[in-house]
């Protein structure tokens, strides 16, 4: 595995020999990777190669599936998030998630953004927080007059930006995005990508995507995963996006990027 990350890049997540199992089935095999702070890292690879499982292990969302368990370490700012005493609730506050299909709560737009902060004990001014989050998500101008309307009354692209706004409202360090634009039309997709670039100044973003052009456009670093014979996912190559796409070290990567498979 070739980790061609710049050695002076500050690292926020360090993964050591991660294996993720669903019961007896190994979905992710021996992955070691480092994620840089405040940059966009893309996970690409064919279907079923464990990208989403890899992503969800960063905020312990895999645990919602009863048979899932993990071997190996994931260090977030030096702390192993799978250690016994670590509370997954705290991990999920630090590591937010945006899902493939927009899933705003069936509440008003205001409550959608405010709820996460409120249950986490936010002590400041909620109205300011909601406005700030919606501005960062490039949604404020479109919804500022209808904060009381249901979140479900927005279009698909707006709903996804609302989901990003509510994730930002909890003030995480890292935002995981699982194919955030795959359910949206091209114009909404472009807006999401612009949004990702804008907020990556303040947040670390890890995005799983099937769309290689998107990965090439948006991310600073790219990790290419593949599936081996036991259908376990492993990391093939990882590095600076431009090098991965213009000068990949492995033939497998080259084949995938040029569309020979996947």
């Amino acid at each position: 595995m070739d980790n061609r990350m710049k050695s002076n890049e500050p690292v926020v997540i360090e993964v050591n020999n991660l294996n993720v199992f669903y019961g007896n089935f190994r979905a992710v095999k021996d992955v070691s990777i480092t994620i840089p702070r405040n940059k966009i890292t893309a996970f690409i690879g064919p279907s079923g190669c464990g990208k989403s499982t890899m992503l969800r292990s960063f905020n312990r969302m895999n645990e919602l599936v009863p048979s899932a368990h993990v071997r190996g370490k994931i260090l977030l700012d030096g702390v192993d998030i799978y250690e016994q005493d670590i509370d997954p609730v705290m991990v999920r506050r630090k590591v937010g998630m945006v899902f493939q299909k927009p899933n705003p709560f069936p509440k008003s737009i205001f409550e959608n953004v405010a709820w996460g902060a409120q249950i986490n004990g936010y002590k400041g001014n909620i109205d300011d927080l909601v406005e700030e989050s919606l501005r960062q998500a490039a949604l404020w101008d479109e919804v500022k007059d209808k904060l009381g309307q249901s979140g479900l009354s927005l279009s698909g692209g707006q709903q996804q930006r609302l989901c990003i706004a509510r994730t930002i409202a909890v003030k995480p360090e890292i935002i995981l995005m699982d194919e955030p634009a795959s359910a949206l039309d091209p114009i909404a997709t472009l807006r999401i990508e612009e949004l990702m670039e804008k907020i990556s100044e303040n947040y670390t973003i890890i995005v799983v995507t099937h769309n290689m052009q998107q990965a090439a456009r948006v991310s600073h670093y790219t990790a290419f995963f593949n599936m081996d014979e036991d259908r376990a996912g492993y990391l093939v190559e990882y590095g600076n996006t431009s090098s991965i796409f213009t000068n990949p070290a492995k033939k497998l990567t080259q084949d995938y990027i040029t569309g020979r498979f996947g």
Partner: peptide, 24 residues
């Protein structure tokens, strides 16, 4: 998807049940 959105924001199981599952 509703429950996952709730957990993703750092809610406990009871908060997810009380604020989202039960009303639904």
């Amino acid at each position: 998807s509703l429950k996952q959105a709730s957990y993703g924001l750092g809610a406990t199981r009871w908060q997810t049940v009380w604020h989202h599952v039960l009303p639904n």
